[in-house]
Write a protein that binds this DNA or RNA. Structure first.
Lengths: 201, 201
DNA sequence: CATTTCATGTAATGTGTTACATGATTAA
DNA sequence: TTAATCATGTAACACATTACATGAAATG
């Protein structure tokens, strides 16, 4: 009964903002909790049976018919209770990190390529976020604005983190080029005040 | 036969740096590809059977005995081939993002708490990374240095991203406090020129 | 006196991905 | 004419988490 998982709450949070088809949900979920359609459709059916969601059939011409899901009162309550509880730790799984860890096994050319490819991906991300921001800017009627606040700041977050990672990449590129792999490349000063830690200059 | 998954390569990359017990592996893997011991121990056995790894028994007094795994030549080859291939896209799953998305459903007090708790977690992360850096600084004999390069820059990466996210959190706190939820809060230049892929509103 | 650290494993369950299935419309 | 977009679904498989299992030593 109460076995709704995180993806379920992610769906509720998207539908709380605006009714969507399962197909649309896939795109919106990417921002908060990416999932494939094969995971979403069965869960939508299950949640509809539990009356957290409801849907209406929409017949279309030239396109397949669709189901537009919206959140119910019960669903909204479940979501509100859930968001008030402190979130569990994030999970980041990134093959790039493993490859960076083993970067000492690569020749200089290959290690530069690894980082440069990452920079290109980050630039794409930065670009995408800028476009999304511009799109939201255009659509700033006061009604949708407060509901869009969360989405807006998440786009800003992704934008900032991508920019910061790009800065880091560039620093790594310089370290590799200068062959500073074998001697102190990061400068620290011990700080008495902070218990046992050091501070980066 | 060749069915070694990403966790398998993550294990190889850690063992490539330094032989470890399964127990130690759990800690090191946290940086690149977090996994529970229940996933690691069976995989170590499997990879040992495939001769990518080997181990020696170490008897201990006052502590349980352990197996120290090291990478074999075959394992090193497998790892080298794998790291040269461009990595697949990262996966981030973070309940916090869902809750931020639905932040408009919360009262001001609860939404401030959500962000403040995040800041506290980020500060813990920042502190942990600083300590890890200090630890590596202490241990800078030239032999281990190049092997530690990857680990070092990953710690730096995590440190920088956590700091940047903290900055973002503080900005969000101000937006909430100033009740700037209903009018343009972020100032970006519109990008009409960039080749437009369809953007969700 | 309770929790954490060390240390390794299995079993059951839950979550996520890939592949299978269908089919019209539109843009490159 | 090839691919992408729209649109929904199922089945098989791969991957990850939780719980079960044991137990001594050290720390608070």
């Amino acid at each position: 009964m109460n076995d709704i998982n995180t993806l379920g709450y992610a769906i509720l949070s998207v539908l709380g903002r605006k009714p969507c088809s399962g197909y649309e949900l896939v795109q919106y979920l990417e921002v908060v909790w990416p999932a494939k359609h094969s995971q979403i459709y069965p869960l939508l059916n299950k949640m509809e049976q539990e009356e957290l969601l409801e849907y209406e059939h929409v017949e279309q011409i030239g396109k397949p018919n669709k189901k537009i899901y919206s959140i119910t009162e019960k669903g909204k309550e479940a979501l509100e209770n859930w968001i008030a509880v402190s979130p569990s730790d994030p999970i980041h799984r990134d093959e790039f990190l493993i490859k960076v860890y083993s970067i000492w096994l690569l020749e200089e050319g290959d290690s530069l390529k690894l980082i440069q490819d990452r920079i290109r991906n980050l630039e794409k991300t930065i670009d995408t976020q800028l476009k999304k921001m511009a799109e939201l800017e255009k659509n700033k009627d006061s009604d949708s604005m407060s509901k869009n606040f969360g989405r807006y700041i998440l786009i800003d977050r992704k934008f900032r983190l991508a920019k910061e990672e790009k800065t880091w990449c560039q620093k790594v590129l310089n370290l590799i080029k200068d062959k500073k792999l074998n001697f102190p490349f990061l400068c620290y000063v011990s700080v008495e005040g902070i218990k046992g830690a050091s501070i980066l200059i």
